[in-house]
Design a protein around this nucleic acid. Structure first.
Lengths: 192, 192
DNA sequence: CGTCTATTTGAATGTACTCAAAAGCGGTGG
DNA sequence: CCACCGCTTTTGAGTACATTCAAATAGACG
């Protein structure tokens, strides 16, 4: 079975016919490493389900500093939600951290799917809710923990991301410099 | 017109009959200052619309330090969204920063309203989306700006909150100490 | 192999916290 | 109406956390 179908079925029931309708409305794309799927300022007209590889969304501040807002690895979604829903210019860039395979779904297709497969609404809501909770937890961590605590929690919660992503991206995600993360890692490894 | 009805009508159309149905499903409560509406660990069985006054949600860390996750003043909603939707123990406390009047809506009532007034679903979704965007922006600010920049942005975006709330609460919301916020305020006022 | 990018290390600096003491402020009771 | 109490804010000194910059080292890839 297609990974995205298995993914959906973990949240909502789908008949064989509905699976076919869904697959007919989406498009599979192969993405090169460093390929930019969405530049800041463009309207985000798709959402992407990552079948393999890794995408990430980031913001660039006036001095060119990058701040990673979100990672999406296998079996996760990414897209600028606000831009997508309101058709406003995107506030983040989305690009590939690795060569990836994604399932792309456009807004018109999604709207159509919502009418043909009503239980998808539930899926969309659950997705939004968990994105909100994750963001709230990350905000709370950012205002209440030290860099070392945040990194330790990250490495424990996402051990595989910790292995797989370059250190400077993890540092950007945590809101610290790559140099300081290097020092934190050294300290933690000397302890354990 | 009731403030909450005017609030809803800014997002969705409502007939006179629907207004009456809505008002029949909610309850108005008068809240004393410092009254605790939701203790951490309890399931959040209501959402609250603040008609007057101010509520806030906060987390207490192991050392008893408070971190304010959300403020809600007139015309805003508050509640532990995850706890409410999934009926899990709440991760935040919600209490009154000022004597307040709130409109309380329970989960069963809300579910019933969703079937009787379908366009409320749209309202709920818009609410969730804007909560998500706000949280994402706050997370980004927390990982990318200094305390002074965050406070300046807060004071500009919410000048009235800045006047009205005690400094230690604003500090907690921004993730800094009350002492340091005092120093930031002094510096900014000497500049302008 | 050479080049380019990422990581490590150290010194100097800046940002924010802790602790303690003093000053300010609002409410309550005498 | 004023004095007092408790809580909040201010201020300063000392410290801890995190950044910047620069140089050296390590890895990845054509």
């Amino acid at each position: 079975m297609q990974p995205i179908i298995a993914h959906l079925k973990r949240y909502i029931p789908l008949s064989g016919e509905e699976e076919a309708i869904f697959l007919g409305a989406v498009r599979t794309r192969r993405i090169r490493k460093k390929q930019l799927l969405l530049p800041e300022g463009d309207v985000c007209r798709q959402q992407w389900y990552v079948q393999s590889g890794c995408l990430y969304g980031y913001d660039l501040n006036e001095k060119g500093g990058m701040h990673i807002i979100k990672f999406a690895v296998e079996d996760q979604w990414i897209g600028d939600m606000h831009s997508f829903l309101c058709e406003t210019p995107s506030l983040m860039n989305i690009e590939a951290a690795e060569a990836s395979v994604v399932i792309e779904i456009s807004k018109p297709s999604l709207d159509e799917l919502y009418t043909k497969i009503p239980q998808l609404e539930r899926f969309g809501r659950l997705n939004m809710e968990s994105a909100f909770i994750a963001m709230q937890n990350r905000m709370l961590a950012a205002i209440s923990q030290t860099a070392e605590e945040r990194y330790a929690a990250f490495a424990q919660q996402f051990p595989e991301l910790d292995q797989r992503l370059p250190q400077y991206m993890i540092a950007s995600y945590l809101g610290i410099t790559a140099e300081f993360l290097s020092k934190i890692r050294k300290k933690l490894s000397s302890i354990s």
